[in-house]
Amino acid sequence: MKLQYVGNSFSEGLTDGKIYEGKDVNIFCVAVMDDTGMERIYSRLAPGPFAGKSEGRWDII
């Protein structure tokens, strides 16, 4: 599925407005190839940095 990240960009992670290819992991998480070039798991409801508050969201494209 194609997901667009909308929120604050953060280094070595996700960029606001960028489209990522996502894979279902479970009902809480998706795996995406982020800006580091690595596949990482992010929250479906509040994607963001592992350590820190997130104000982002995914839009399904």
Results as ranks from 00 to 15, higher is better:
Val32Glu: 00
Arg44Trp: 04
Asp24Gln: 13
Val30Lys: 05
Thr15Asn: 11
Glu55Met: 04
Ile41Gln: 14
Ala31Gln: 15
Lys23Gln: 15
Gly48Thr: 03
Glu12Thr: 12
Asp24Ser: 13
Gly56Val: 05
Asp24Lys: 12
Gly37Ser: 03
Ile19Arg: 03
Gly52Cys: 02
Pro49Met: 06
Lys18Ala: 13
Tyr42Gln: 02
Arg40Met: 05
Ile41Asp: 04
Phe50Trp: 12
Val25Pro: 12
Val32Gln: 02
Pro47Met: 02
Val25Gly: 11
Ala51Tyr: 11
Asp34Gly: 05
Glu21Trp: 11
Lys18Met: 07
Asp16Ser: 02
Asp16His: 14
Ser54Lys: 07
Gly17Leu: 07
Arg40Lys: 15
Thr36Gln: 04
Pro49Arg: 07
Ala51His: 05
Lys23Thr: 15
Thr36Cys: 02
Ser43Asn: 13
Lys18Thr: 12
Gly37Ile: 11
Lys53Tyr: 00
Ile19Leu: 07
Cys29Thr: 05
Lys23Asn: 14
Ser43Leu: 08
Gly56Ala: 06
Thr36Met: 05
Gly56Thr: 04
Cys29Asn: 15
Asp24Trp: 12
Gly22Ser: 15
Ala31Tyr: 10
Ile27Arg: 11
Val25His: 14
Ala51Glu: 06
Phe28Met: 14
Glu39Cys: 02
Gly13Cys: 11
Ser43Lys: 04
Thr36Lys: 05
Gly13Val: 11
Ala51Lys: 09
Phe50Pro: 12
Ile41Leu: 07
Ile27Lys: 11
Val32Cys: 01
Leu14Pro: 06
Ile27Phe: 01
Ile19Pro: 00
Asn26Cys: 05
Leu14Gly: 09
Tyr20Asp: 06
Ile41Pro: 10
Lys53Ile: 06
Glu21Ala: 11
Thr15Trp: 11
Gly22Leu: 04
Met33Ile: 14
Ile27Val: 14
Asp34Val: 09
Asp35Ile: 10
Asn26Ile: 06
Leu45Ser: 13
Arg40Trp: 06
Ile41Gly: 00
Lys18Phe: 13
Thr15Cys: 09
Ile27Trp: 01
Thr15Ile: 14
Thr15Tyr: 12
Asp35Glu: 13
Asp24Cys: 06
Pro47Lys: 08
Asp24Leu: 15
Gly17Asp: 04
